[in-house]
Design a protein around this nucleic acid. Structure first.
Length: 1010
RNA sequence: GCCGGUGUGGCGAAAUGGCAGACGCACAGGACUUAAAAUCCUGGGACCAUAAAAAGUCGUGUGGGUUCGAGUCCCACCACCGGCACCA
């Protein structure tokens, strides 16, 4: 640390004001009908006291930071970037008269505390509490105006009680497609066969798809009704393959897996079928997508969510698998059985006639129904997968089995490798393409994903890169159904025509003599586009597509053909228009200790079948058991399974041993802040209405600031939960966060991302120690626009620190300052605070009228700071204050009123120094200081900024040549004359004719000469 | 590959289509000081010119375009950053 002299005694001022604010509870936000003490500065400002109803309270402003995970490493300088921005705005809004809600809390469940517990046996709660204490100390040292009475931690029993409660709401609801919203599960009607006592056959396919295969087919009606309900809940159990991370000992959500590795730690992730809790976020895909248009987020962030949800319009088309002749057991005659329907999803129904084969994903259960017993005579080795398996499978069934094993052995990383050559095997069966009724082979290949669309596609190699690649490898036919634009054709053919083209043309016995190159290219494309070097995937004109009499498509544009074919399919009941989403259901269970336990127990019915049941709301909170050892059990069960007493209930039922993911707590914390102490409800109606409701404007949190890393995780999950709560009538708005801003990353001084390993981490504690909290706050904002990524520069901190020093010296008497410093060296530190009284104000500050020039300087600053705060341009607001200080340093007399107003502008940015000088200014002049935090924000007076004369730039032929001074109300003739009179301009226009004069009022003059 | 964003002095950056580089850092010179630190003052895009200046020319990633006038608007391209990626 440098031993240089302090610019001003921030080390005394900052703790002093932080204590004052805490004692006053200065930043307490009051709820409707809450008792407001008459002497609270908020009450004084708004002339309120006692219980005040929502309508009498000032307008609300809810400004929120993404709450941090309290890590052992403590705060880094990235945290205070967003926190400072929101704090400045919170203070500004308070001054503007809003009732500001600005809370802070802790996202305190999470893996590091648990890993520490596994290593040391220390209970995660102990670590977590210590970390929270450290974070609290650090955050408080920066003077943020949080309402600490609303502080919460997701690990608080009183908090996660309600997280569990919301889970029960999800569990006890289903999404009704008819009303397009979530409803209590009781409104779900059973299908006819489950309504009556006559037992019908349940659809095995539906069961398999919904993951309710826990139940056996021989259950009684009651358990089948239960299974049906369970398959519709928003929280349901699935046996689907999940992302298992052996290193972390837990499963992960899709969003938490990046390039086949865990987002946390970068450990390998494998796919493994496991019983897991899922949340049906896919039911909300459409709303999550559509409602993005109603909120004020950055385009890039909205785009990220749109891409993640990934809606694509298209059609689901039914292909019929080939029928079979089967020998009837009681009769010598054989019977033709129609094969099952294979639904495929396509965004290009116009290319239906170009489908030359079908591909199903290895996981598709329909394959078992349609796979053939025998190879057809013509099946060649490649189709059977001989080289892939190193032997020839005897039957398609065997090939399918081998291929499924092969596909399952691939890790996520390998499966998603785009450069990997496509593989697949023929399953010996064919399907019928519905328009032209072509017979096309069916393949199983892992380039088709199981969980997108129907898990099966129609392959159109002529117009799809992936299908093209596959068809080329397995020598499957390629049929053109879209004629590309001329430009594409000519590009592909080349000029002069490439050899493949001329050869192909000869081969087909065509003569080019009679036609031009374009016609020839078209002819060849229509005949055999497979000869071209690559597929055409764009839009064009339909060809080769009119198979039956009632469907004429040839000649239509791609868009027209899509519409016509889709309509035809719908009419013939062969398909329908659909929108498919990439979004998948949210894998909601983790095999961890340090998370919310599920309020769920498992029971066996009389037949021995397991089913889950929710605990009653009255039993919440469900606490986790205390453990000695936090590792998973030896047989791979989650740690909760170690607590036998906890696990097994007297009635023989067994608790769910999974816990919820860290995202659960952060899905609704912003709601709890509005009513943090409510014991009756997760949030009271009045509080929700007041803080979250629209007031005819923004609905939800007015401003939410945090990092981009949560673009698709937290922000999507929270929106989903909020919408469910909205549908069920528990909250009053459909969206949680109206305006959202991402602060940019702060890099180290070496321009690299800050990390312990690089040793470039800046610790805020050290900055506060050396320069003070106000300087840190100011620097974080002065670095550049909030949203930008920018490198830290300690010299930059010194710059704003110097600015604060200059501001200080503008106010205080230099001799008194020196006396104070000398006294400080001879007094024991505990008495230092009292020495502050030695500092006297500068004699130049007098209670006199300001000069017009001084007023102009002040009001220019008010204008700029106010406008920049509204636009969140903190860096330029600070530079405006620097300009003011630079100017004011030259003043002989400093009018009290001007100096006070400046402090109000400074206060949101550097509240400690502003409060100190504000208090001193008042006491020196025998006045009582009103609370600066609630002082009415100054208004600038435009009249004071008006000039009588203005400088205008003069251009000649668009080039700047001189400036002239003219009266502000000078007419164009006068301006033109003044411009021509300028000596410098003269040299450029002398002897030339002036063709045109352009005068932009109060902006510039441009003389055009010939 | 697709989507989004960003390119301006030595550095962080600023500029409703109208004097590019406000403000700050670093740097240089000066004042104060025995000296240094701190503070205060002055300077500053590049080129050309000069004893010093003035004047002049060029200049916002590259190339075009619109306009009296472009960092700003349009088209094409390049580089970097972020996200997604066999999603049919």
């Amino acid at each position: 640390m440098s031993s240089s002299r302090r610019q001003y005694p921030f080390h005394l001022i900052e703790p002093k004001w932080q204590q004052t604010w805490e004692q006053q509870q200065a930043f307490r936000a009051f709820n409707p009908n809450e008792e407001i003490p008459a002497n609270h500065p908020f009450a004084v400002r708004h002339k309120l006291s006692g219980k005040v109803s929502a309508t009498q309270l000032p307008e609300k402003f809810y400004i929120l930071d993404m709450f941090p995970y309290p890590s052992g490493a403590g705060l880094h300088v990235g945290h205070p970037e967003g926190y400072t921005a929101t704090d400045i705005l919170a203070r500004y809004r308070r001054a503007c008269g809003f009732n500001v809600l600005h809370p802070m809390g802790w996202d305190s469940f999470g893996l590091p505390a648990e890993q520490y517990a596994v290593k040391t046996g220390q209970h995660p709660r102990v670590t977590t509490e210590a970390n929270i204490a450290n974070f609290t100390r650090q955050i408080k040292s920066l003077g943020f105006s949080y309402d600490w009475s609303r502080e919460l931690a997701t690990t608080d029993v009183e908090y996660f009680k309600w997280t569990q409660w919301i889970f029960l709401k999800l569990y006890n609801s289903w999404f009704n497609p008819e009303t397009n919203r979530a409803e209590p599960i009781e409104t779900l009607k059973f299908p006819a066969e489950l309504e009556s006592t006559s037992v019908g056959r349940a659809s095995s396919r539906a069961d398999a798809w919904d993951g309710s295969s826990v139940a056996s087919p021989h259950q009684d009606l009651e358990s089948r009704r239960r299974a049906y309900r369970d398959s519709k809940r928003l929280a349901y159990v699935s046996e689907a393959p999940v992302n298992w991370c052996p290193e972390l000992g837990t499963v992960l959500a899709n969003e938490e897996v990046i390039d086949g590795k865990s987002e946390v730690g970068g450990f390998p992730v494998i796919r493994k079928p496991m019983r897991q809790w899922m949340l049906r976020i896919t039911a909300y895909a459409e709303k999550l997508l559509a409602d993005l248009d109603t909120i004020d987020w950055s385009d890039s962030l909205k785009e990220m969510q749109r891409n993640w949800i990934g809606g694509s319009e298209g059609a689901e088309v039914e292909f019929r698998a080939g029928g079979k002749y089967v020998r009837r057991s009681d009769n010598a005659e054989s019977e033709f059985q129609i094969g099952p329907k294979i639904p495929v999803f396509t965004t290009r129904p116009d290319t239906l006639c170009g489908a030359t084969y079908l591909v199903m994903s290895p996981e598709n259960k329909l394959l078992d129904e349609i796979v053939e017993d025998k190879w057809p005579f013509w099946a060649y080795a490649e189709l059977k997968g001989t080289s892939l398996f190193g032997k020839e499978p005897a039957t398609p069934k065997e090939a399918l089995e081998l291929y499924r094993k092969y596909a399952a052995s691939k890790s996520d990383l390998e499966r998603t490798d785009l450069n990997r050559e496509k593989t697949g095997v023929y399953i010996g069966e064919s399907a019928v393409e519905p328009i032209r009724e072509n017979i096309i082979p069916i393949f199983v290949a892992d380039y088709v994903l199981a969980n997108y669309g129907t898990g099966a596609i129609m392959a159109v190699p002529a117009h799809d890169e992936r299908d093209w690649e596959f068809a080329k490898k397995y020598r499957l036919s390629i049929r053109a159904v879209v004629m590309p634009p001329d430009e594409w054709l000519m590009n592909a053919v080349g000029s002069p025509p490439a050899e493949w083209f001329t050869n192909a043309f000869k081969l087909l016995n065509l003569s080019m003599d009679s036609m031009d190159l374009l016609t020839a290219a078209r002819k060849l494309y229509e005949r055999d586009c497979g000869l071209f070097p690559y597929p055409f995937v764009g839009t064009g004109t339909a060809i080769n597509s009119s198979g039956t009499d009632d469907l004429q498509v040839n000649g239509l544009s791609t868009a027209e053909a899509k519409a016509k074919i889709t309509a035809w399919l719908e009419e013939k009941k062969l398909g329908k228009r659909t929108i498919n989403y990439k979004l998948r259901d949210w894998l909601f269970s983790r095999q961890r200790y340090w998370g919310e336990p599920f309020p769920i127990v498992w029971k066996k019915d009389a037949a021995g079948n397991l089913h889950h049941e929710a605990l009653p709301e009255s039993s919440l909170p469900l606490l986790p058991p205390s453990l000695e050892d936090y590792k998973p059990t030896a047989d791979g069960q989650p740690p909760l399974a170690r607590a036998k007493d906890w696990l097994n209930l007297p009635d023989g039922s067994v608790r769910e041993t999974n816990t919820m993911p860290q995202w659960a707590g952060s899905c609704w914390y912003y709601l709890r802040y509005t009513d943090a102490k409510n014991v009756q409800s997760f949030v009271g109606k009045d509080a929700d209405n007041y803080w979250m409701a629209s007031n005819g404007k923004a609905a939800g949190v007015d401003l939410y600031v945090g990092g981009t890393e949560h673009a698709v995780l937290h922000l999507l999950y929270a929106r989903f939960w909020h919408k469910v709560l909205f549908d069920l009538g528990h909250v009053s708005t459909p969206e949680p966060f109206y305006k959202l801003v991402n602060q940019g990353l702060i890099l180290g001084e070496d321009m690299q991302k800050m990390s312990k390993a690089r040793g470039n981490v800046v610790n805020p504690d050290a900055v506060v120690e050396e320069y003070g909290a106000d300087a840190l706050r100011l620097y974080e904002m002065f670095m550049g626009p909030l949203q930008d990524t920018k490198p830290w520069n300690t010299k930059g901190v010194e710059g704003v620190y110097r600015f604060l020093g200059r501001a200080w010296r503008l106010f205080v008497d230099e001799k008194a300052e020196t006396a104070f410093e000398q006294a400080e060296t001879t007094t024991e530190p505990s008495k230092h605070a009292e020495l502050l009284d030695l500092i006297l104000l500068d004699g130049g500050i007098t209670d006199t009228d300001a000069t017009p020039a001084q007023l102009k300087t002040l009001h220019a600053c008010i204008k700029k700071v106010t406008e920049d705060l509204d636009g969140m341009r903190f860096n330029t607001a600070i530079s405006a204050m620097m300009v003011f200080i630079n100017e004011a340093m030259t003043w002989q007399t400093k009018p009290l009123s001007v100096m006070k107003t400046f402090l109000q502008l400074l206060a949101p940015f550097a509240p400690h120094i502003a409060e100190e000088l504000w208090a001193r200014l008042h006491s020196t002049f025998g006045q009582t200081a009103p609370s600066l935090a609630y002082a009415v924000w100054p208004k600038f007076d435009a009249a004071l900024l008006v000039e009588s004369e203005i400088e205008l730039p003069v251009q000649v032929n668009g080039k700047f040549r001189d400036t002239i001074k003219v009266a502000v109300d000078a007419d164009n003739t006068a301006i033109e004359a003044a411009a021509k009179a300028s000596e410098k301009v003269q040299t450029f226009i002398a002897g030339k004719a002036i063709k045109k004069v352009i005068i932009v009022p109060k902006r510039m003059v441009n003389l055009i000469v010939g």
